[in-house]
């Protein structure tokens, strides 16, 4: 799935995550900001990578601002951002 435009999903409210996505520079680049980065940062990054893989996204810049969201919420927000930014190959 190609990301052809910038898109966002989620909010900055507690227990949510805000996700921005835009077309990449040849590969996926993921940045994560989180108040629990020390404990869960890598886990969040892995969850984002898994969602991108499931949706066959290979060239996107993704920024996640985590506000204490559970993994299922982060996954939902990334998926929403991808589907909002997608274009058919």
């Amino acid at each position: 799935m190609d990301i052809i435009k910038s898109a966002t999903a989620g909010t900055m409210e507690s227990s949510d995550a805000y996700v921005e996505i835009e077309p990449g520079n040849g590969k996926n680049e993921i940045s994560v900001e989180s108040v629990v980065w020390m404990q869960f940062g890598e886990k969040i990054r892995t969850a984002v990578e898994e969602v991108l893989n499931e949706l066959e996204v290979e060239n996107a810049k993704v920024r996640v601002v985590d506000r204490g969201a559970l993994e299922c919420v982060i996954r939902a927000r990334v998926e929403t951002a991808v589907l909002r930014g997608k274009g058919e190959k």
């Binding site: 999903a9 559970l70 299922c72 919420v73 939902a76 998926e79």
Partner: peptide, 14 residues
């Protein structure tokens, strides 16, 4: 769209 996916994940994982 966002709510539908969030509710689905809540039902799937919680």
């Amino acid at each position: 769209d966002a709510a539908r996916i969030l509710v689905r994940n809540t039902m799937k994982y919680m």
